[in-house]
Amino acid sequence: MACLQANEEAWQLLVVDLLRKQGTGLGVLAGIMAALTNAASPDNRAECVRPGVDTVFDKAAQVNEFLAYCAAEH
């Protein structure tokens, strides 16, 4: 997180695996605008929104919507 915060202007898109063997990627979601996940259950969506994610896209059904969101002025 310190590296990401120290270099905020150096990146525009961050891809994080939320479901890992050890722990989750939820700790880096604070301030992230959108999440793309293949585990978009209501519970997982709530876990993403809690730290500040604006919207959650389902990887299996909403990839085009996610790409459009990324291409927009976000």
Score class of each variant (00 low, 15 high):
residue 1 M to P: 01
residue 3 C to H: 15
residue 3 C to T: 12
residue 3 C to F: 15
residue 3 C to Y: 15
residue 4 L to M: 09
residue 4 L to Q: 02
residue 5 Q to R: 08
residue 5 Q to K: 06
residue 6 A to G: 15
residue 6 A to E: 11
residue 6 A to T: 13
residue 7 N to R: 12
residue 7 N to P: 00
residue 7 N to L: 01
residue 9 E to R: 15
residue 10 A to R: 12
residue 11 W to A: 00
residue 11 W to R: 03
residue 12 Q to T: 11
residue 13 L to N: 15
residue 13 L to Y: 14
residue 14 L to H: 03
residue 14 L to G: 03
residue 15 V to A: 11
residue 15 V to G: 08
residue 15 V to L: 14
residue 16 V to H: 05
residue 17 D to H: 02
residue 18 L to V: 05
residue 18 L to T: 01
residue 19 L to F: 11
residue 19 L to V: 12
residue 19 L to E: 15
residue 20 R to L: 06
residue 20 R to P: 00
residue 21 K to F: 10
residue 21 K to S: 02
residue 21 K to A: 07
residue 21 K to Y: 03
residue 22 Q to F: 05
residue 22 Q to Y: 05
residue 22 Q to V: 12
residue 22 Q to S: 09
residue 23 G to I: 02
residue 24 T to E: 01
residue 24 T to K: 05
residue 24 T to Q: 02
residue 25 G to K: 01
residue 27 G to E: 14
residue 27 G to Y: 08
residue 28 V to R: 05
residue 28 V to L: 14
residue 29 L to I: 13
residue 29 L to T: 15
residue 30 A to L: 10
residue 31 G to N: 03
residue 31 G to D: 09
residue 31 G to P: 06
residue 31 G to W: 13
residue 31 G to S: 06
residue 32 I to E: 13
residue 32 I to N: 07
residue 34 A to G: 14
residue 34 A to Q: 07
residue 34 A to D: 07
residue 34 A to M: 07
residue 34 A to C: 11
residue 35 A to G: 12
residue 35 A to F: 00
residue 36 L to V: 05
residue 37 T to C: 07
residue 37 T to F: 07
residue 37 T to I: 03
residue 38 N to S: 15
residue 39 A to S: 15
residue 41 S to K: 00
residue 42 P to F: 01
residue 42 P to C: 02
residue 43 D to L: 08
residue 43 D to F: 09
residue 45 R to G: 02
residue 46 A to P: 03
residue 47 E to N: 02
residue 47 E to V: 08
residue 48 C to M: 13
residue 48 C to I: 08
residue 48 C to Y: 05
residue 48 C to R: 04
residue 49 V to W: 00
residue 50 R to L: 09
residue 50 R to A: 10
residue 50 R to Q: 10
residue 51 P to W: 08
residue 52 G to V: 08
residue 54 D to K: 15
residue 54 D to C: 10
residue 55 T to C: 14
residue 56 V to M: 04
residue 57 F to Q: 02
residue 57 F to T: 04
residue 58 D to T: 10
residue 59 K to Q: 14
residue 59 K to M: 13
residue 59 K to A: 15
residue 59 K to S: 14
residue 60 A to P: 05
residue 60 A to N: 12
residue 60 A to G: 12
residue 61 A to E: 13
residue 61 A to Y: 10
residue 62 Q to D: 12
residue 63 V to S: 12
residue 64 N to K: 05
residue 64 N to I: 09
residue 65 E to N: 04
residue 65 E to K: 10
residue 65 E to F: 06
residue 65 E to L: 05
residue 66 F to R: 02
residue 66 F to A: 10
residue 67 L to G: 09
residue 68 A to M: 07
residue 68 A to I: 07
residue 68 A to R: 08
residue 68 A to Q: 10
residue 70 C to W: 00
residue 70 C to E: 06
residue 70 C to R: 09
residue 72 A to E: 11
residue 73 E to L: 09
residue 73 E to G: 09
residue 74 H to G: 11
residue 74 H to S: 08
residue 74 H to C: 13
residue 74 H to F: 12
